[in-house]
């Protein structure tokens, strides 16, 4: 369990993290989503005691990280795949970290096996690909078999197989009752991995909710319909926030009304419908909407078009 209370980090006048409060619960994967520069890494570094908060505080399993007797056995973290001396081998790097907690070399070999580093474990880390570096960082995070696992952008640089492996690992750890806190700027990745989502933008929490409710709350029903007389259908559906777009003579997209309601109206109006497809409101769309609002709230001059995360960084 991770609990942040009015956690803030300022660099001069700029607030990288602005009085955020949140709780990361055990037993599920909590995603920490936000555009680059939103304050994800700074927050994670404060959790691990690397950065001192300007104000507020954060505890892991009930205590500030540094106050634990055996910190690596409480919390494992991958913050930065490059936190390694390039001339040391992966095995020796893990051995040195393990030694601080009296973790036996057999556990070092276990995490090497688990992360698939076996073939390169005796090679210098300097020659590792980004993906191998990430695996080494994850191996270090798992050394102490910790109850809480924090991974900052773990799928960065991993191949598709590696991405899937991280996904299974995160879910598996959560299923064992551990706290899993995973950051990413990839909305699609979060949709597949996380159960709960904390969305951060410009150092502030924008949303903190189960992933499903973020999708439901932010998106609106959108349905693709193929019918032989689409205009008759639209005429009967019109009003009450329903919008539509005619894509082809017999193909329309209707927003703001449930598929069942469309079918009912079509039946009543005796319009032949030969396709009725509910369209997935992607988490990405929901995320854009969330962060967009935050940007618009901060600066009034931006156009309201769906420009993605770019305005957040470029502002």
């Amino acid at each position: 369990m991770i609990e942040a209370q009015a956690l803030s980090k300022r660099y001069g006048a700029k607030a990288a993290v602005d009085a955020v409060s949140f709780t990361v619960q055990p037993g599920r994967v909590t995603g920490f989503l936000g555009p680059n520069g939103a304050g994800k890494s700074t927050t994670m570094r404060m959790i691990m005691g690397l950065d001192n908060p300007t104000s507020g505080g954060v505890t892991v399993n009930g205590r500030p990280y540094a106050q634990h007797r055996a910190p690596l056995r409480e919390v494992g973290a991958l913050l930065d795949a490059k936190a390694v001396h390039p001339k040391r081998s992966a095995y020796n790097h893990l051995r040195a970290m393990a030694a601080t907690h009296g973790i036996p070399n057999s556990r070092v070999r276990d995490v090497i096996e688990l992360t698939g580093l076996g073939p390169v474990a005796r090679k210098r880390v300097g020659g590792f690909s980004l993906g191998m570096g990430q695996r080494l960082g994850i191996a270090a995070a798992l050394l102490g078999d910790p109850h809480t696992v924090i991974l900052d952008e773990p799928v960065n640089g991993l191949d598709p197989e590696g991405v899937q492996w991280v996904r299974h690992l995160a879910k598996g750890l959560a299923a064992e009752g551990r706290t899993v806190f995973l950051s990413s700027h990839l909305m699609s990745e979060m949709a597949l991995t996380a159960d709960h989502l904390i969305v951060i933008g410009r150092g502030r929490i924008i949303a903190d909710a189960p992933i499903q409710s973020i999708i439901d709350g932010q998106g609106r029903a959108r349905v693709r319909v193929r019918a032989d007389r689409p205009h008759d259908l639209l005429g009967s559906l019109a009003g009450n926030g329903v919008t539509s777009q005619v894509l082809e003579p017999e193909l329309i997209e209707i927003t703001g009304v449930e598929p069942r309601r469309i079918a009912e109206v079509a039946l009543r109006e005796r319009v032949l419908v030969y396709e009725l497809t509910p369209l997935q409101v992607s988490l990405e769309d929901a995320y854009m909407e969330l962060t967009q609002t935050e940007v618009e709230y901060q600066s009034h001059s931006l156009p309201s078009g769906n420009q993605g995360a770019a305005p957040v960084e470029g502002r």
Partner: peptide, 25 residues
């Protein structure tokens, strides 16, 4: 492909009793 929330519902939690156990620094 979206995981159903039920997958990680509290029913599946198995809080470990041994957390933080073992030698410290």
């Amino acid at each position: 492909s979206t995981p159903a929330p039920a997958l990680s519902a509290p029913a599946r939690q198995r809080p470990r009793q041994d957390r933080g156990a073992g030698p410290g620094v």
